[in-house]
Amino acid sequence: MARLVLSGDTGALARSLSLIIDESGEADVLIRSFFPKSGSAQKIGICGPPGAGKSTLTGRLVALYRKAGLKVGVLAVDPSSPISGGAFLGDRLRIQDHATDSGVFIRSLATRGMVGGVSHTIFGAIHALEAWGCDRIVVETVGTGQDEVVIARVADTVVYVTTPTMGDEIQAMKAGVMEVADLFVVNKADLSGAHKAISDLKTALGLGREAGCGGWQTPVLGISALSGQGLPELLAGLDEHARHLRDSGEGRERLKRQYREEVSLYVSRRVYQDALSQMDSHLDELVDHKSDPPSVAARMLRGGAN
């Protein structure tokens, strides 16, 4: 199946993604075969509050990249219900124009209990899309707005989407995802207040960063994803950032950051699952006071390490 994906087969990619996302037994084998292609696509993270227009913007980006003849993958993440475990994956609705385009692959993902706006299986999903031949991969986060910084450990280029009505420069000064964005986009820039929102963001950015720090000046762009206004500038900004990553060596650092996150999530899940699988056998000891929680934990961890 891995070979089919590498040859560009859409059905094989769809099946592989499911095996990876469901953490099936075959996932590791697939990821190993896909990994040689890792790092070949520009991974663009789209984050921002709900309703800012992330999905509509994603749809626009897909259209522009297709016009440029590039192959595009989209991973759109929406939250799983903590109550039912179900999810409504609604991002796709705004990207459906590209449903039958063979150069576009869109997969909706549920967070399945992970916090931070992405799910941990996203790394494997990205490997699969790169193996399939994507030139650009757009990862659209859940849209919690403030704390989805994990996206910076997944994507090469982080776009923060906001709107003219999302608050003043005090909001923009807060820690969190505002710190990790490489490009700021004020969407719905046809609404009143757009100029103030843009200048507030620029002010907030100007408070912190040394001019020319790292050689990348974080742009603040006013766009309208609906009308298309400002999109050519955004596309140019994204390409510019890809060039910056390549030329400055920052791209290599970011790849390392992504792999560090992927491997540590892998290790922690493996250790966690292995350790917790023996949990039940220890609970009686605790109830009977034959042992204590720190000792049981230490024993479980030793067991999990081998």
Binding site: A14, S84, F88, Q96, T100, I106
Partner: peptide, 27 residues
Amino acid sequence: RDAGFEVIYTGIRQTPDMIAATALQED
């Protein structure tokens, strides 16, 4: 959704091809 399914919604005015292609990509 409330019964625990992961539900993808296409929106209105879909052609048979769009629906089948979406079913494939979303597996």
